[in-house]
């Protein structure tokens, strides 16, 4: 995980305001995962569960009807968060994650076999505060500022985010792909 630069000046403040003031997809509940979903099954909305995510549910530790965070992408947000940002590849996907206090993402790796050649970037959209966790393998990132951008050394690395603080935590994930 390496720090790249602060890109807050290249993100439309209205886009961040939109995320703060609106409700995103309620995840995973809105995925409406079918009973018996299997690794690499594609949901109605085009989401793919990888092996780590599948294990959250098959282990009984987490429930697909829970709400552990909110998500924004081009389907529910008209702002293009990836525009003008660090795009190391030829195409990209973006997802904004909003976590209210008490919300979290279980520990996982992101990718499916279809994601070969992917690079993952995390851009924080709110300042760090105690209780906001951003963990990449054994490294915890803290004291970050809104706009700080980080690139995963390994797109398949274990990582997590969590908000057990007092205020909302928002980050942007961008995956870039080479042709």
């Amino acid at each position: 995980m390496r720090f790249r630069e602060n890109v807050i000046g290249r993100i439309d403040p209205e886009a961040i305001k939109f995320v703060k003031e609106n409700q995103g997809f309620l995840l995973p509940r809105d995925l409406k995962l079918p009973e018996g979903v299997k690794e690499n099954d594609i949901t109605e909305d085009g989401w793919i569960l990888n092996a780590d995510e599948l294990q959250w549910y098959t282990s009984g530790s987490y429930k697909p009807t829970q709400v552990i965070m909110e998500g924004f992408d081009s389907n529910n947000c008209s702002y293009d968060f990836a525009k003008d940002l660090l795009l190391d590849g030829d195409r990209c996907e973006w997802l904004v994650i909003k976590m209210h206090p008490g919300q979290y993402m279980p520990w996982h790796r992101d990718l499916t076999p279809a994601d070969n050649g992917c690079t993952t970037h995390w851009i924080m959209l709110t300042d760090w505060e105690p209780g906001h966790l951003f963990v990449y393998e054994k490294k915890t990132i803290s004291h970050y500022k809104a706009g700080d951008a980080y690139t995963f050394d390994d797109a398949y690395a274990w990582h997590t985010g969590c908000n057990i603080g007092y205020n909302v935590r928002i980050n942007l994930q961008i995956r870039t792909y080479k042709k």
Partner: peptide, 9 residues
């Protein structure tokens, strides 16, 4: 703490 449980800051 079972999976998904926590104590806030």
């Amino acid at each position: 703490m079972m999976p998904g449980q926590f104590i806030p800051v």
